[in-house]
């Protein structure tokens, strides 16, 4: 077993990133330490989402390696993975169980009330607004006990209040020695941010 006092949470070495069988990045390297905040930037089609999907294990690396210290991450994609006919609470429950975590109901409700969704707990996701759906997806971040957050364009369709909530959430996640990697074209403007510009490399 790896030593958990080691500060590196995730090591990516020599990763080949392909889109539609064309290589976008031939030799991508990354070390993610505790409390890191990494923003992946670049224009549309530069492979931000694809890179994140490699990190989340949705795409398998054919060349290079992706090593998690504890294999412990939460991924929120552009489509948050919420079934329209299930309620907010049921969806959250499934997302956490699917990640092999048994979170108590009260903790799930805590996450929901943080995002102002508590009164919506028994509403089907199909009846929510786009911003509420986005927030519901982010609520799973709070519910899950993951060391690394992988967020794909988290700011899309979020209002001011939700964006400032996300900033607070990421800051406190970092304070708890968790790392965040996000694909975004806007940027959050938080201190100590590492930026990876895909267009430059």
């Amino acid at each position: 077993m790896t030593d958990s006092s080691e500060p590196v949470l995730l090591t990516v070495a020599g990763l080949l990133v392909e889109v539609a069988e064309r290589p976008l990045l031939t030799d991508f390297n990354l070390k993610v330490e505790e409390s890191a905040l990494i923003e992946i930037k670049g224009p549309n089609g530069s492979g931000k989402t694809t890179l994140l999907r490699y990190l989340a294990g949705i795409r398998r690396a054919h060349k290079g390696s992706i090593d998690y210290r504890d294999h412990d991450f939460a991924y929120v994609g552009q489509k948050p993975g919420l079934n329209a006919s299930l309620t907010v609470f049921e969806n959250l429950k499934w997302l956490t169980r699917n990640a092999d975590q048994d979170i108590s109901d009260s903790n799930l409700l805590l996450a929901l009330s943080d995002l102002g969704l508590k009164s919506m707990r028994d509403t089907p996701v199909g009846a929510l607004s786009a911003g509420q759906v986005k927030r519901c997806g982010l609520a799973s971040l709070l519910a899950l006990n993951a060391k690394i957050w992988l967020l794909d364009e988290p700011l899309t369709s979020l209002d001011e209040a939700a964006i400032s909530w996300l900033k607070v959430a990421i800051t406190s996640h970092r304070a708890a020695r968790g790392a965040t990697i996000l694909a975004t074209h806007a940027g959050l403007g938080l201190p100590d941010t590492t930026t990876i510009d895909l267009n430059a490399s």
Partner: peptide
């Protein structure tokens, strides 16, 4: 809706 993505990830 992206659930499959979560399932695979």
């Amino acid at each position: 809706d992206g659930s499959l993505e979560q399932l695979v990830a």
